[in-house]
């Protein structure tokens, strides 16, 4: 009896040891494969593709960096209007993105979607599409469609925000408490009333938090819209770069940092007020 029990436990111990050994070997194999892939990438990208001679050694790099170091403060007054434009572009883009993401979230939330076979996949697809295309590409497409100016920037920022806002909103809608919805249906509320009184109040805090978060990110995004033909700080950056005025470039980067710090403060207080 006791002998049998011992042999079973010893057998179990051996099996456990063997399992642990095989697992360790597996982990080492994964690490080795990862290291090999990384080494291959380093060889391809850094060793073979880099023109070390043109870089001019440490002296050349130092010389270029030094030119960035002398900040061109004379540009500062000319940055106020572009900075304001960038902020406005981000704000309008976020608002437009919210408006556009409402139907997408409605289609893409499994429990309220009007049609599970056509509109639900469409909503999900639009969410992925919006996030998978980079804001630069959206801006290029819209510059082609509506011409230069702030409008393509606003539209690009809006299109890029749809994915995130509608995904979070759809998840919030899927996780709501169904009881208020049933109650409103039971007393004869129509579809709009169900949405406005049953779903809306439950998801509003989540949505507002997401919008504030997205606004914060959109400031960064709208700061580069000028690179492809929409206005704002990106345009000044592009021009300073084209003039090889690296001190001015540094100042624009500092202005972007200041703008984002401002956005960070505003969103901190806004989130505190909402939640």
């Amino acid at each position: 009896m006791s002998l049998a029990a011992t042999s079973v436990s010893e057998h179990g111990f051996d099996a456990w040891l063997a399992h642990k050994r095989s697992r360790r070997i597996k982990n080492w194999l994964i690490v080795a494969a990862g290291a090999a892939v990384l080494a291959w990438c380093v060889r391809d990208t850094i060793l073979f593709d880099t023109d070390w001679a043109r870089m001019g050694g440490a002296l050349g790099i130092g010389g270029t960096l030094e030119r960035f170091f002398w900040v061109d403060w004379s540009l500062a007054p000319k940055l106020l209007v572009p900075a304001l434009e960038t902020l406005m572009m981000a704000t309008l883009g976020t608002i437009l993105g919210c408006i556009l993401s409402l139907p997408v979230a409605w289609f893409g939330a499994a429990n309220v979607t009007p049609s599970r076979f056509i509109l639900y996949p469409l909503g999900r697809f639009l969410m992925v599409l919006s996030r998978s295309i980079h804001e630069i590409i959206w801006a290029l497409l819209f510059v082609g469609a509506v011409g230069l100016g702030a409008l393509p920037g606003i539209l690009a920022v809006a299109m890029r925000s749809i994915g995130f806002i509608s995904k979070i909103t759809a998840e919030a809608i899927e996780n709501i408490d169904p009881k208020p919805v049933e109650a409103i249906r039971a007393v004869g509320g129509n579809q709009f009333q169900v949405m406005y009184y049953g779903i809306g109040p439950q998801i509003l805090p989540v949505i507002i938090g997401t919008i504030i978060f997205e606004w914060d990110i959109n400031i960064r995004r709208s700061a580069i819209m000028g690179l492809v033909g929409a206005g704002g700080l990106g345009l000044v950056f592009f021009r300073q770069m084209a003039m090889f005025n690296y001190g001015g470039v540094t100042l624009v980067v500092l202005a972007v940092l200041a703008l984002i710090a401002l956005g960070e403060v505003v969103s901190h207080f806004a989130r505190k007020a909402v939640i």
């Binding site: 990208t45 880099t50 023109d51 870089m55 790099i61 270029t64 960035f68 770069m241």
Partner: peptide
């Protein structure tokens, strides 16, 4: 990207 390209030249680095 633009800043690194300016300092280090074009390429994947």
């Amino acid at each position: 990207t633009i800043l690194f390209v300016t300092v280090l030249g074009f390429g994947m680095l």
